[in-house]
């Protein structure tokens, strides 16, 4: 097993000692590159009061390559498809090795606060969002109620 780069150790320590408000990220014991993540829906967004589970994986090339992140909780959002894949520039073309796990998770939280239906993730959620924003937001709230509640 290749040793964990110092940067990953430092990032993990800081995520635990100085957590981002509304975000948790814990590495798995058997694979320190694999994290279980939760993100609270931002206040005032349709995802408010929801707690969303995500998985995050740091590839071998991290930080030269971006972390791989995916929603596990079903979410109605124009930039997240039904497999939980996220359309976010910093995860793809705008990745930079100066970014960190916490900055990526903050960006995802920000994406929940401001959905962008004009971003080219072609799904019918985006379509719905543009045609009928009120209805789409209602659906997003409904899904949050239905799928994103804290486990007892």
């Amino acid at each position: 097993m290749a040793s964990l780069p110092k940067r990953i150790i430092k990032e993990t320590e800081r995520l635990v000692s100085d957590p981002v408000p509304g975000i948790t990220a814990e590495p798995h014991d058997d694979n320190l590159r694999y994290f279980s993540v939760t993100i609270e829906g931002p206040e005032g967004s349709p995802y408010e009061h929801g707690i969303f589970d995500l998985e995050l994986f740091l590839p071998d090339d991290y930080p030269m390559e971006s972390p791989k992140v995916r929603f596990l909780t079903k979410i109605y959002h124009p930039n997240i498809d039904r497999l939980g894949r996220i359309c976010l520039d910093v995860l793809k073309t705008n990745w930079s090795p100066a970014l960190q796990i916490r900055t990526v998770l903050l960006s995802i939280q920000a994406l929940l606060a401001s959905p962008n239906p004009n971003d080219p993730l072609a799904n019918d959620v985006a379509e719905d969002w543009i045609k009928n924003e009120t209805g789409a937001i209602a659906t997003a709230k409904e899904w949050t109620q239905k799928y994103a509640q804290a486990k007892e």
């Binding site: 994986f57 590839p59 390559e65 971006s66 791989k68 992140v69 995916r70 498809d81 894949r85 996220i86 359309c87 976010l88 995860l91 793809k92 080219p120 993730l121 072609a122």
Partner: peptide
């Protein structure tokens, strides 16, 4: 690489 985002581009 795992394709997180299936981007048409």
């Amino acid at each position: 690489r795992f394709q997180v985002i299936l981007d048409s581009d």
